[in-house]
Design a binder for these strands. Sequence first.
DNA 1: TAGAGAGGGTTATCCGGTTCAGGAGAGGAC
DNA 2: GTCCTCTCCTGAACCGGATAACCCTCTCTA
Lengths: 336, 336
Amino acid sequence: MKRPTIADIASRAGVSKVAVSYALNGQPGVSEATRARIVAIADEIGWRPNSAARALNGARANCVGLALCRPARILGVEPFFMELISGIEGVLADRSYALLLQVVTSHQQESEVYRHWWGESRIDGAFLVDLHYADARVAELERLGMPVVVIGHPSESGSLSAVWSDDGEAVRETVGYLRALGHHRLARVAGLPELVHTTVRDQAFAQACEGVAEHVIVHTDYTGEEGARATRRLLSSPDRPTAIVYDNDIMAVAGLSVAQEMRVEVPRDLSIVAWDDSPLAQVVRPPLTALTRDIPAYGAHAAQRLLALISGESVPPYQDQAAVLTPRGSTGPARA
Amino acid sequence: MKRPTIADIASRAGVSKVAVSYALNGQPGVSEATRARIVAIADEIGWRPNSAARALNGARANCVGLALCRPARILGVEPFFMELISGIEGVLADRSYALLLQVVTSHQQESEVYRHWWGESRIDGAFLVDLHYADARVAELERLGMPVVVIGHPSESGSLSAVWSDDGEAVRETVGYLRALGHHRLARVAGLPELVHTTVRDQAFAQACEGVAEHVIVHTDYTGEEGARATRRLLSSPDRPTAIVYDNDIMAVAGLSVAQEMRVEVPRDLSIVAWDDSPLAQVVRPPLTALTRDIPAYGAHAAQRLLALISGESVPPYQDQAAVLTPRGSTGPARA
DNA sequence: TAGAGAGGGTTATCCGGTTCAGGAGAGGAC
DNA sequence: GTCCTCTCCTGAACCGGATAACCCTCTCTA
């Protein structure tokens, strides 16, 4: 009934605990014959190393942490995090690392969670997402001295390693495409203004439009309701935009619905672009032109860096591929 | 630099390790004055109990596991799991339990993950979701003797505790509602047929329609594409249904788009109901009538049961509230 | 004033591994 | 025959807490 320990194996094999430890860890100090015998016994009785006992010897916890600070109702809707997590885990699983997850409601709580996990030796490192400007979490994590990979722009990640992608490039590609289609009045329905990547996109958007197109930016909380409200306001203005770029797909879908409800035909009267592609973008009519990126790969890269960091390597900022535009039915030439 | 231990506190306070242990755990054996002094020192130097050391004493790992066996692209789209997870964590966090998460690609892998975690004393218990008929995982987990709460129908959960909701009731309410609106040809676009809850809903649907309405059931993999394809086929048949019930919201949205693309007006020519409400259901035009349930609460209940199970209590199956119908613009009277 | 009992601490041991400092025995060189 | 080296293995200590058992010092009671 009790879980077998190396002591059990040792007594069965007629050797000491130490020999068993060496044998099972592939260390020198035992003959091949003895090693084989020990391994066979371990297999037979289904031995697994007790992670706590290992961790107690200053070894790693073989676990990394991720705390997400977003309300449940937004987390559920945004495919981003689930895809990111599954990408992260693909890498972790290969190295038998586990992922400790917690959903929190404030940055302060988030810092606390990390402090606890680290203090209790539960994790060897962590990811930090949704970077803000002058983010208190960065300082806090630097103070802890814990290996951390920031998934976000390196300009704000302090001394922490960062994995990021150039959103500016994607914005420029999008604006260029819309301009080529003849659009001169562009709008951007953006996410939370305090997030670094929102500002990065905002600035790139404003810059790309500079002198060649009128532009307006509206900030929201990523929910469909706010996306709908923003769209309604934009489409009600006398010089309404002929193209809108949304910061996520749920808002883009909401915007599409608002357009239809206002008898604004897409893409004839209005072009729509969604940031982050997803099945959702493809099932609506017309299917949404989207900024596609491989989010699981993004997560995988971050996980690789974190593991490298944990094993003592130094990890320079890593720039992942920028999102690319996938044109579909929701964008078309501007009406003359 | 090194993490403080109770030995550090002990030497500072001029007492033994044991006194510190008693003091910090609120056990009798130390005077209030000493306790206060020790707690103050612990606070000051930022002591946290080493979880590994605690776990080594036969104590709990203070951690439970959840392995999800669905492809990333489906996990991302389905708000269900994220909401479930955040509900689970609300309860866990209160008792400083952590959640170990892993996304796997097969049931076999899933069983393995649980075996490893349990064998390594990483977790004290686990959740089992997406129950199949004659599910091998149930037998496997029973064999492990690990506390497990199945989130699914108790008829298939063997000796494991179950938390479930009566999908049959929700189906009957929906069919009743559609019939009252005058619908006589109903369709159900269902999820994976091997899942227990799919069959439960299928049977309840067939039974509720028995003798009072024609009905057809199509199975899919929950993706928008298959939802769209199923809808297209249904709407192309000569005696096409006047109402369709979808097993998730992404398929319902896809179905709505297909209807619009085929010039089938919703709700005039076709009523649509989505299982599981979400912001998505509310942002499309018309907003979708949905079967609403409090998924975070569902997860919270499961977590409460799991913690009870871990602390040795016996936990009878718990039936959560059934989903309730939230009528919106996508359902209306059948045309004469 | 001895004895009982309670309060407040301590020492020793354990949990399941890892690691370090040897030690026994075989084999080789001189 | 002696000394040295190398292989293979062992005892003991340790990681950071929890816990059982015991001990000392008061205080209260008979």
